[in-house]
Computed example of a mutant assay.
Amino acid sequence: MLRKLGQDPESPDGKSPTVYLDEETDNYILQGWRVTDPDRLAQLDVPGHETVIEFPKRMMPFFPEVKLAQEAPGDSPDTR
């Protein structure tokens, strides 16, 4: 089962990008902007059974591990 962890609050349509957790595999599923620029793709080694998406850095707090690290006691905002 997929659990939605968060959606880009700055998305103009409110539909993308989105971070999900697959509770059966414990893997993340990311919905984002398809990377189609040939120059950018040429810098990657993407097997035929994979794809590449892009999503904004501002969405990192939706990942539970990042959120827990940010809430760590004694952590100051300027060290994040």
Rank of each mutant, 00 (worst) to 15 (best):
E24Q: 10
E24S: 05
M1L: 14
P61A: 02
S76A: 02
G14D: 12
V66W: 04
K4W: 12
D45W: 10
W33R: 15
H49E: 07
Q7N: 15
V52W: 04
I29W: 01
P61I: 00
R58T: 04
P9I: 11
T18I: 03
S76P: 01
R34A: 15
F62V: 00
D37P: 11
P73S: 00
A42H: 13
L41I: 11
D39N: 13
E10T: 13
L21S: 03
N27Q: 13
D39E: 14
P9C: 08
S11G: 10
L44K: 14
Y28I: 05
R34E: 13
L44P: 09
P56S: 08
R58D: 09
W33T: 15
V66Q: 03
R3Y: 11
R40I: 15
E54H: 06
R40T: 15
K57C: 12
T79G: 02
E24F: 10
K57L: 09
K57H: 11
E65H: 04
L5G: 04
T51V: 07
V19A: 03
P17M: 07
E50T: 09
M1N: 12
I53R: 06
T36F: 09
P56D: 05
D37Y: 13
V46I: 08
V66M: 06
K4N: 14
V66I: 11
P61N: 00
L44F: 09
R40C: 15
A72R: 03
P61D: 02
W33L: 14
G14I: 08
Q43I: 12
G6I: 02
E24R: 10
V19Y: 01
L2P: 05
D22R: 00
P77H: 06
M60C: 06
K67S: 11
D8L: 03
G6C: 07
S76H: 01
Q7A: 09
T25P: 05
Y28Q: 13
L68F: 08
Y28E: 12
V35P: 08
T25W: 10
R34Q: 15
T25V: 07
G74R: 02
G48N: 02
Q43W: 10
D26T: 06
E54D: 10
Y20C: 06
V35K: 08
D37S: 13
P61W: 00
Q70F: 07
E54F: 03
E10A: 10
P9N: 10
E65Q: 05
E10F: 13
P56Y: 03
S16E: 09
V52C: 08
E50Y: 11
A42F: 12
K67W: 00
E54I: 02
L2G: 09
T25R: 05
R34G: 15
N27C: 12
E50H: 10
L41G: 05
A69L: 07
V66F: 09
T79W: 04
G14S: 07
I29D: 03
V66L: 07
G32S: 07
L44R: 12
T36D: 15
E24L: 11
I53E: 05
I29C: 11
K57W: 10
M1W: 13
Y28W: 11
G6N: 04
M60S: 01
Q70A: 04
P73Q: 00
E24V: 03
D78W: 10
V52N: 02
Y28V: 06
A42Q: 14
H49A: 13
M1R: 13
G74M: 01
